[in-house]
C-alpha cells in the first residue's frame, strides 16, 4: 500500500484525489479537504442542478442522495464521500432514446404546479425521491414530515405535497 493510501495518512490541506460515483459514473475529483460535496458537484463536475442557497444546512436546496439517503451536500465534505455513491437531480432525466424524458416525480411537480420560482425544486425532488424510496405510499402527514427538511421561500408547500402524493400514486402503478 502506498504511503498516501494508508488508513492513518494525513491528506491535504492542498488538493487531493477523491474517487466516488456520481450518477452511476465513476469520477475522480481533485479537491481540498475543505471542499463541500455541493461545491465539488457544481464547480468540479459542472452539475449545477444542485443549488447553493443558505450553505449552512438550513434550507435543503442542496439536497442530494448519498448512498440512497437524502443529505445536505453543503454540509458534507467531498473528501468524506470517497468510495460512495451520489445521485443528483441530473440523474433523474433519461438520457437515452428509450428512457422517459422526465422522472415521474418531475412530471408530478409539473402536473401539480409544485413550485413558483423553482430554485428549491431540485432539492425538493431529491428529498421526495428519498421519501418515496422508504415509503412508497405515504400519508399526507408522512409527506409533510418527510419533506420538512426543504424550505420553499415562495411558499408553494401545498402544491409540493400534492406533487409528492401524485408521484407516489403514479410510481406505484395506480396512476
Amino acid at each position: 500500500m502506498i504511503e498516501s493510501m494508508k488508513s492513518d495518512a494525513i491528506r491535504g490541506p492542498g488538493r487531493v484525489p477523491v474517487r466516488l460515483k456520481v450518477n452511476d459514473r465513476e469520477v475522480e475529483l481533485s479537491v481540498e479537504p475543505r471542499t463541500t460535496l455541493l461545491d465539488a458537484l457544481r464547480q468540479e463536475l459542472n452539475l449545477t442542478g444542485t443549488k447553493r442557497v443558505c450553505d449552512s444546512g438550513a434550507c435543503g436546496a442542496c439536497t442530494v442522495l448519498l448512498d440512497g439517503e437524502a443529505v445536505y451536500s453543503c454540509m458534507t465534505l467531498a473528501i468524506t464521500c470517497e468510495g460512495r455513491s451520489v445521485e443528483t437531480i441530473e440523474s433523474l432525466t433519461g438520457s437515452s432514446a428509450d428512457a422517459p424524458a422526465l422522472h415521474p416525480i418531475q412530471e408530478a411537480f409539473i402536473a401539480e404546479d409544485g413550485y413558483q420560482c423553482g430554485f428549491c425544486t431540485p432539492g425538493q425532488i431529491m428529498a421526495a425521491k428519498s421519501l418515496l424510496a422508504r415509503n412508497a405510499a405515504p400519508s399526507h402527514e408522512e409527506i409533510r414530515r418527510g419533506m420538512s427538511g426543504n424550505l420553499c421561500r415562495c411558499g408553494a408547500y401545498q402544491k409540493i405535497f400534492a406533487a409528492v402524493g401524485r408521484a407516489a400514486h403514479e410510481m406505484s402503478g395506480e396512476g
Partner: peptide, 14 residues
C-alpha cells in the same frame, strides 16, 4: 472555511 488537513483512521486507537 480555512484550509485543513484530513485523516480518516481505521480504528479508534489511531
Amino acid at each position: 472555511m480555512k484550509r485543513f488537513s484530513f485523516a480518516a483512521p481505521g480504528s479508534a486507537r489511531e
